[in-house]
Design a protein around this nucleic acid. Structure first.
Length: 571
DNA sequence: ATAGGGTTAG
């Protein structure tokens, strides 16, 4: 489609005497932007402005451009175009302009900007609808602004804007994300009593939470209830449950799951698939598919010790050719970073598409992903690899969720090179990379002790118009801390706060941990206090970390005491 | 088209 469009576009442009009208320009700006060719969009926009006399940009042009910029994650540029629209275009923003911008800002944690635009929208006489409110709410919750989010919800009700099921799901999930599990659960129960506003996703959110807390019994009970009320227990839910069941080594519970899921075909297929796959594992003759390159990477990964050694091998070969960037000691890494980061639109604010069940034909890939998740959760990399091989042999197109799963496992084992190879493969297959994928790269670089490279990747990411969310910041702060770069970690903590992202439990736990491991006990204590002052409730990880901190403080006291007593002895 | 994933500890 994209190619055909481009061909038609080029042919039209070559034609003598042909010129686009406003509508033509608008369509092209939007289309190229959506397909990642932002350069083409911007060129057309500039061209349009030069022809101001005949066909200047209209409001629709501005909205298209703003929406395209937001989609690609270049919200700052979108905001600039928005300014231009208001100041020098002779047009006024309409409700679509405001809606696009609120969504763009909320999604990229620019909650402050989102709020300003939201207010301006109302000042200019536009009434935000449910979707705009939902978007604002989600942004506030994501940025851990619990109080503001609750206030906004109240305002929404006061203004008579109808809350939808999505609104409540955002609310329930937001309360969980902000460390208020009791409130989330109470809200969930209230909603159930009222009967409306509960759907499969609501249940899924709560089931996921139970799984996360290891409360399998409760999770299963809820699934039963979900079924009895006629909600579909979908693949996302089943995957969470199966992972949790497997993690606790309770495959016998799958019987229970099956008994209660109406569409027990789904679970049954999972189990059948498992049996079939185990059989094919015993029978290791497998033909190579189109992905033999990746596959050799993956299957060999077991036996190769990588990272630093590999890096230096490449360095010997290539250091004479490549100039060395000041931020890196590995030209090989530079090259990789160069080749994959220069590809257009590697990083967008939208999530990579999750695998959806699309009927019996696409069922296999769903199963593959389910099992990948299960094996990966257990660290059974070899099984996961085999599985990956089997389904690529079967000619199934890889999807980004699969890639993310694979990457995550490699990264956890420290096989960064493979992860990066997969990322490149992903680019070739035009799978959208999302923030989770990049998060894994940062994580792995941190594990390799290469915080320098991590910050370079991050730098380029930001230059491309990407943004960082809480998880990204947390991962990166952790990576810096583990590499002993405590001051930089602190710097990022400040940057995080100033860009409107509120730290969460994980942030504080990480900060307390890295400071106490670095022997900066006072700072560690400072962050504990900060955490409590911010009204952020500690969790069980905090306890573990504090135990460590406590022991370190005791050790210090003991040392001091012994130094003092030595002094006493000598004097 | 705004929700269910990816981060810390052991």
């Amino acid at each position: 489609m994209k190619v055909e469009f481009k061909q038609v576009f080029d042919r039209l442009r070559e034609k003598k005497g042909f010129a686009f009208d406003t509508w033509g320009y608008n369509i092209c700006i939007y289309a190229f932007g959506c397909w990642g060719d932002l350069g083409a969009s911007l060129t057309l926009f500039k061209e349009m402005k030069l022809k101001e006399e005949e066909i200047g940009p209209d409001l629709c042009t501005y909205n298209s451009l703003i929406s395209v910029l937001c989609k690609v994650g270049r919200v700052n540029d979108a905001l600039k175009v928005f300014q231009e629209l208001k100041e020098g275009s002779g047009h006024e923003p309409d409700e679509f302009t405001y809606r696009i911008l609120v969504q763009g800002c909320s999604k990229t944690y620019r909650v402050h900007n989102a709020t300003l635009i939201f207010n301006e929208m109302q000042y200019n006489g536009f009434r935000p609808d449910t979707v705009v409110y939902n978007s604002m709410l989600d942004g506030l919750f994501k940025a851990r602004k619990l109080t503001e989010a609750c206030q906004l919800f109240e305002k929404m009700i006061e203004e008579g804007v109808k809350a939808s099921c999505w609104t409540y799901n955002i609310l329930v999930d937001g309360l969980l994300k902000n460390g208020r599990p009791e409130a989330a659960y109470t809200l969930f129960c209230d909603l159930k009593k009222k009967g409306q506003f509960v759907d499969g996703v609501t249940y899924s959110i709560i089931v996921l939470q139970f799984c996360r807390e290891g409360q399998l019994e409760e999770a299963l009970q809820l699934v039963e209830e979900m079924e009895s009320r006629g909600f579909v227990v979908d693949l996302v839910t089943i995957t969470s449950l199966l992972i949790s069941i497997h993690r606790h080594g309770r495959w016998d519970w799958t019987d229970r799951l099956m008994r209660h899921v109406r569409e027990s075909d789904l679970v049954l297929s999972v189990l059948k698939w498992k049996a079939g796959m185990e059989a094919s594992l015993k029978n290791p003759k497998s033909k190579r598919g189109d992905f033999s390159d990746v596959m050799s990477f993956i299957t060999n990964a077991q036996d190769v010790t990588l990272d630093s050694q590999h890096g230096s091998n490449f360095q010997d070969k290539e250091s004479s050719v490549n100039k060395i960037d000041e931020w890196s000691s590995s030209p090989h890494m530079d090259k990789l970073a160069e080749s994959s980061l220069s590809t257009s639109q590697l990083f967008t604010p939208s999530r990579a598409q999750r695998v959806q069940e699309k009927g019996p034909d696409s069922f296999d890939i769903d199963m593959v992903n389910t099992f990948l998740s299960i094996f990966l959760a257990k660290g059974k990399l070899s099984l996961a690899c085999k599985l990956f091989e089997i389904f690529t042999d079967a000619g199934v197109d890889p999807v980004s969720y699969t890639f993310n799963s694979m990457m995550s496992s490699f990264v956890k084992r420290g096989y960064f090179t493979e992860a990066w190879a997969i990322l490149n493969q992903m680019g070739e297959n035009l799978c959208p990379t999302d923030i989770a994928t990049y998060n894994m790269i940062i994580q792995s670089l941190g594990k390799m002790g290469r915080a320098d490279l991590a910050s370079a990747v991050l730098d380029r990411l930001l230059k491309q118009g990407g943004y960082l969310d809480v998880v990204m910041y947390n991962t990166f702060i952790n990576a810096l801390g583990k590499a002993g770069r405590i001051d930089e970690a602190n710097k990022f903590f400040e940057q995080m706060k100033s860009s409107g992202i509120n730290p969460d439990v994980v942030t504080y736990n990480t900060l307390i941990e890295i400071h106490s491991k670095a022997g900066r006990l006072k700072d560690a204590y400072k962050f504990l206090k900060m955490m409590l002052d911010a009204g952020c409730p500690p969790n069980h990880v905090t306890d573990t970390t504090l135990d460590y901190l406590g022991r370190e403080i005791d050790k210090l006291r003991y040392q001091r005491a012994s130094i003092l007593s030595e002094r006493d002895d000598t004097s």
